[in-house]
Design a protein around this nucleic acid. Structure first.
Lengths: 368, 368
DNA sequence: GCCTGGCACTCAGTAGACTTGAGTGCCAGG
DNA sequence: CCTGGCACTCAAGTCTACTGAGTGCCAGGC
């Protein structure tokens, strides 16, 4: 690493502008690292003494001019140091960040979590957001698997009150959906039993997305109940198809930003679950694990970075975990935390044999 | 209302300090109203021209001195106007605020909400927080009824995978609880069926809080499943006893306060569900509907006011709705919104015959 | 006795002038 | 091609003065 060896660091940076040489990369790295820590513009003399740079501040300055021209750095005002642009962070994340592992304390924390947590999925996902946000001190998001490929394992009608009946459906992935049905007339217990049996026979084993018809049960009363249940299925559909989303540690956002307005708008985004899911999916689909600033296209999040990791088992997509913080976030820690938690969540979901195409493959015969 | 008629307005203010006369009350009211609107210290000349006051600013000033001495107002600094203290807001809320009704637009909004929303309780409560926070532009909290007095309506065992069984319990209030059980050995379907029937026979009709034992089912395998299910009941207990809590519009907090630190700490409180429930219960138990500033004893919420309304039907407590905003909140609107929503939620929960001792009484025919 | 107008006073907030110092760009010399 | 040096820039801090909103107090009037 002689000062004169200026091999290109980026393999594809040629695509736009000139590639950064090693020294420029080192300087950029120093600026980003320092800025992430201090949140204040970084001057040339500080960078000049950083390990891996070791040239005079004048040289650093001239390189900084180049980096600024190429769009990696900006100056808030003339006589200030430099701060990284989104492009600067992007280069940092892509080329200057080693995968990174969690610290021992945090690793322990993750292990403890997965030892303690029990099998109920929603509960696990919910608490995983807490874990993630505690590990990183950023806001965390976990998106659980949707149920649309699950099959129906059980259908049950339970009378709650003379005119009220609850339809309870158990899916192969362990999810339980319910829907209340209200009737004009009282519903007799034996009608419920008959209708329930009829529904069971025709629906168990089917997927929730396919359409089906249930033949008449012989009595008008039974048919009425069956029809109501079929309608209730339709109402349930919405919650079956929609992804489960959990948000953890939103109060951390207020630590990450000091402009109230930013906090407000980011919290606002987090309240719109659909937007969050779409955002995470988008980022993952584009093969990224980090979206910085405006890269994801949501203006209210322009001052945020999003770190995403898939939750999957054997290549089957089960969901995603995400972290939301300021663009000057500690990417290494965040990436490590997201990946570890995502991976172990995937293992867990796979382990219990749920939430995948493999769910029903078992040798176990016929539903009850 | 001659200027010299200084009848005491408060009936019990004698208890501490002197009672406020009518003019002082009017001045206090003007200050509070004005400050709620402008968030800036209110000067004497502004108050002098307020309707209901109509004296010179000099007179207002001397009354303000008295109000300050009694602790209803403070001056941020010598040459500034006055702002209300917690005690000032308290007097305002107790004596100067008429019950108040919602505006027509908002009333419509509430009606539309209760027309559209369907019967699933969690869903309704969840969305009620959205309604409340939209009505008032403060953060909203809804606490649902706990299930501890409900009886078991159905117990079911569903096989998910060879070693995995799901215990599904339906309660009389329409709640469905589930718990996954994992077995070392494969569980045969007929064992599940037998065990399920056994559990049903012995548990349906009981409350969730009482202890019970289920006799042997004749086979070791069945007994093993029953034992596991009994243990699973224990795990479920926690979620049955804990109250359901929903938070809506936390991003509104960032609008209410301009100090990031305040936003952070209040959001932090909202994340601790237990604390929030306790807070609401405390306030309700003390017979209050508003807790201002430090009245509730949680320092992080010292700059907040909490408006609470019970959700109950026929005197049976089903939960509570709450609003969280700055001490300079619009109490009249907030109180009106909380009461209306709380009341209608109570009606709804009662209407469907759930969530109360009255479940099953249902003389009422035909719902909506 | 109580209200009112008038007057002197206080003090936060704003604006302008000045200083400081961190940091830059540029250039000549090695 | 790197480096030290130098002149330059400009945000932030300090000091001063000014402004005006608002007060407290008092003497006079109803």
């Amino acid at each position: 690493m002689t000062p004169t060896a200026h091999r290109a660091v980026s393999t594809d940076a040629r695509a736009e502008g000139r590639a950064l040489n090693e020294r420029q990369a080192a300087i950029l790295e120093a600026v980003v690292t320092e800025y992430i820590g201090s949140a204040e513009p970084v001057g040339s003399s500080l960078v000049a003494h950083a390990p891996g740079v070791q040239v005079s501040s004048a040289t650093v300055r001239s390189e900084m001019v180049a980096l600024e021209r190429e769009g990696y750095l900006v100056q808030p005002h003339t006589s200030a140091g430099r701060i990284p642009t989104d492009k600067g962070y992007r280069f940092f994340v892509d080329h200057l960040t080693q995968p990174g592992v969690l610290g021992p304390t945090q690793h322990k924390q993750v292990c403890r979590f997965f030892d303690q947590v029990h099998v109920e999925m929603e509960d696990m996902l919910e608490r995983a957001t807490g874990l993630l946000s505690e590990l990183t001190s950023y806001a965390a998001v976990v998106v659980g698997p949707s149920h649309d490929s699950a099959t129906i394992r059980s259908v049950q009608l339970v009378g709650l009150a003379p005119h009220l009946v609850l339809l309870v459906v158990v899916l192969s992935d362990g999810a339980v959906e319910k829907q209340t049905m209200e009737f004009e007339a009282e519903v007799a217990d034996d009608v419920l039993t008959t209708a329930g049996a009829l529904l069971s026979t025709h629906l168990v084993g089917r997927t929730t997305t396919t359409g089906w018809t249930v033949p008449s049960g012989g009595s008008a009363e039974v048919d009425r109940v069956v029809a109501a249940a079929t309608a209730a299925f339709g109402l349930m559909g919405r919650s079956i198809e929609s992804d489960q989303i959990f948000v953890g540690g939103p109060s951390r956002l207020a630590q990450s930003f000091d402009a109230v307005e930013t906090v407000r708008s980011v919290l606002g985004i987090l309240e719109q679950q659909l937007v969050v899911v779409t955002l995470l999916r988008d980022v993952l689909d584009r093969g990224l694990s980090v979206a910085i600033g405006t890269e994801h296209g949501y203006e209210p999040l322009a001052s945020c970075a999003v770190v995403v990791a898939p939750v999957s088992i054997d290549g089957v997509d089960l969901g995603a975990v995400g972290l939301l913080g300021p663009t000057r976030m500690d990417y290494q820690r965040a990436l490590a935390a997201a990946h570890v938690v995502g991976e172990r969540l995937g293992q867990r979901l796979g382990e219990t044999g749920r939430g995948g195409a493999s769910a029903g493959a078992g040798s176990h015969d016929g539903g009850n």
